[in-house]
Design a protein around this nucleic acid. Sequence first.
DNA 1: TATATATTGAGCCCCAGTATCAAATCAATC
DNA 2: GATTGATTTGATACTGGGGCTCAATATATA
Lengths: 167, 167
Amino acid sequence: MSRPHSSGSGRGTRSLPAGQPAAQPAVRDLSEGMAARGRRPTAQRLVVLEALRGAKRTVTAPELFDQLREDNPLIGRATVFRTLDSLVDAGLAQRFERPGHVYAYAACSSAHHHHLVCTVCNTTIEIDEAALGMLTRELESRHGFTVHHATLDFYGLCERCAQQESA
Amino acid sequence: MSRPHSSGSGRGTRSLPAGQPAAQPAVRDLSEGMAARGRRPTAQRLVVLEALRGAKRTVTAPELFDQLREDNPLIGRATVFRTLDSLVDAGLAQRFERPGHVYAYAACSSAHHHHLVCTVCNTTIEIDEAALGMLTRELESRHGFTVHHATLDFYGLCERCAQQESA
DNA sequence: TATATATTGAGCCCCAGTATCAAATCAATC
DNA sequence: GATTGATTTGATACTGGGGCTCAATATATA
Ligand SMILES: [Zn+2]
Ligand SMILES: [Zn+2]
Ligand SMILES: [Zn+2]
Ligand SMILES: [Zn+2]
């Protein structure tokens, strides 16, 4: 919530505030995640990742932007939006949908992932979901969570597009 | 694709083009779906549903609007957007996300539904997904589909919010 | 330290999605 | 079939999430 302000100065990327208790290896996770994509672990990206992890809930990009500005007035709007996508891409965060066409992000260690949806022609194939019943019930008792509804969708290539791909 | 234009006239709701081969009981499904929600099965809603079913793939709202205009220049932009949400609400369609923050719809007979996400406080709890491996493999062989990635998220109430709810 | 590459952020723009509200339709009742 | 009240439609205007541009700046590598 209230990290000592670093002596902000100039523009562009600044050195990290330097002095976090390093509760979780966010720095390491970021370095590895970015390296795997040929990206750089910048101070801004770290700030965003830590904010996400601290939130422990889904946060919208605008929400996060406003929150980060408080301690870091220099951070750019575009940077926050771009970073969120980068984190998702690196498997360090995930995107969710809230009712009313609102989208939010949450930190997540491992990527998670109903329908078959072709990413090339967008063809959809409905799938059988019988297998989920048991899983749902177990989750409810294990986490004390009340499941109202869930989404399960598979993304990939339909048979036809897979062939064209290899041609 | 090319249905005979009904003699368009005036504004507002018109009577249906009247003359479809009625391949699938789209009319009936719509009636039932809307009735269950206290809504009316209008001509526009039927056109949208049939277009969705005919597409057999996910379609964005703007895409669908442009497509529908061709045969029905009178249909309103807002109507298409609203109708899509209505169909999802009635369980006759579902919403999907495409890469790049693009959202699309597809007709679907039964609602489908990884993470636990509280719809009140948005708290998230990561869940174990080991059970999905088998399901994924079976789907791939059954449909000739190549799964690249999938999303599975549960929505509902966390323990705390469930208590407050009942208070 | 010098050089190449990647990232940042301020400003501007686009468009998906929504609010508004009068005209039009439907359902129900007389 | 005319009347009336609840819904829906659609033309229009608006909003804001999110992307683009590009000069300034930081990181990586030699
Ligand atoms: Zn559902
Ligand atoms: Zn395909
Ligand atoms: Zn994935
Ligand atoms: Zn909760």
